[in-house]
Design a protein around this nucleic acid. Structure first.
Lengths: 195, 195
DNA sequence: ACCTGAACACCGTTCAAGT
DNA sequence: ACCTGAACACCGTTCAAGT
């Protein structure tokens, strides 16, 4: 398709490098989605035989790892003069852009059923619970999206202990509860912590 | 490898069904990881020719979607008598088990570089910021894991607007801030909202 | 040192039968 | 209706050269 002369002889490469390979991979990922980046396709885009890439990366996974590292290296350093919250906002907003942005498009890596919050059956129950808690029609779906993002992210980001999951979940619930217009939730939660 | 007689004739299947296929897929995923579940391998496990599966699922993605749906359908319904926080805890804890558990092992779907929080360069900056904010040596890594899980999860779970990301991030930061022993963070954040 | 070929052991999926 | 074969257009990676 790329070559009009039928047989294609990748020969005008001359001067491969990790950076050049990663650049081409990012571009290919941005154009067709990361899941379509294959060693063979990438080699063709670089006018090189597939095996040439293995001089620079042990295998495909090493190449993808380097691509993720490259994306997150571009994240702006925080400004030490700002508040910690401001610094965190900067760090995480640009991290999200890097991860969800064109080059990586992380979402496409996961089963489609996870991609739309509504596709998970849980959403019905969750939205009802949040509605009864006092979240209005605009806040409830956002709160649910937040909670689901945290849960999916935690499940995806390696092996955390139950403790860690609960720690983060409690912080998140605290923040959500504090955003309620009143503590108008009919039912106060019974606090029972050891004697 | 599975058959000792060399040539393998899948014939004793008789009675395929969506449920039987999904059961085999979940078992195969639990044993070898979801990323190793192939249509061909799955067919072999069921003693059936690969194309037989296409009577029950349009394509591989449809099969994976159904597998995710099956996993989340097992999540316990919340008990309406409990507080909203308690209901959310139940819902999300079991969702996390379903997603990160043996059958799906969501983490293995993403580039390895994302799986260990420390592998992302951001961690250095983030931990310093959190330390200065007043999180001690035990809380800071947990707080970071929470924030990264949210960010990765949001990037992964479909197309959210910036608004939505910021909404959840603010709730999470609120909850984290409230957990600090004192509001001993030296610097108060300047609150500037509209005029 | 760096890249080439050919080959091996896989994929998902279409198509045209078979029963 | 349900399953079989063969085939097509791909994969990642090993190995043994070539220059």
């Amino acid at each position: 398709m790329a070559g009009a002369t039928g047989k294609r002889e990748p020969d005008r490469a001359a001067g491969l490098s990790r950076e050049r390979i990663l650049g081409a991979a990012a571009e290919l990922g941005a154009r067709e989605g990361l899941e379509k980046v294959s060693m063979r396709g990438l080699a063709q885009a670089l006018d090189v035989w597939p095996m040439a890439l293995y001089r620079y990366f042990d295998d495909k996974e090493a190449l993808l790892d380097a691509l993720v590292a490259r994306a997150t290296d571009d994240v702006a350093r925080p400004d030490p003069a700002a508040s910690w919250r401001e610094q965190m906002r900067g760090l995480l907003s640009s991290a999200r852009e890097a991860l969800g942005g064109d080059a990586l498009r992380l979402g496409a890596q996961l089963p489609r059923a996870l991609l739309t919050p509504g596709a998970v059956r849980l959403a019905d129950d969750a939205l009802r619970v949040l509605g009864e808690a006092g979240f209005d029609a605009r806040a409830a779906p956002r709160a649910w999206r937040t909670l689901l993002s945290y849960t999916v992210g935690f499940a995806a980001v390696g092996s955390g202990r139950d403790d860690d999951f609960e720690y983060g979940l409690e912080r998140l619930l605290d923040g959500l509860e504090a955003s309620l217009p009143r503590s108008r939730s009919g039912r106060r939660e019974a606090v029972r912590r050891g004697p």
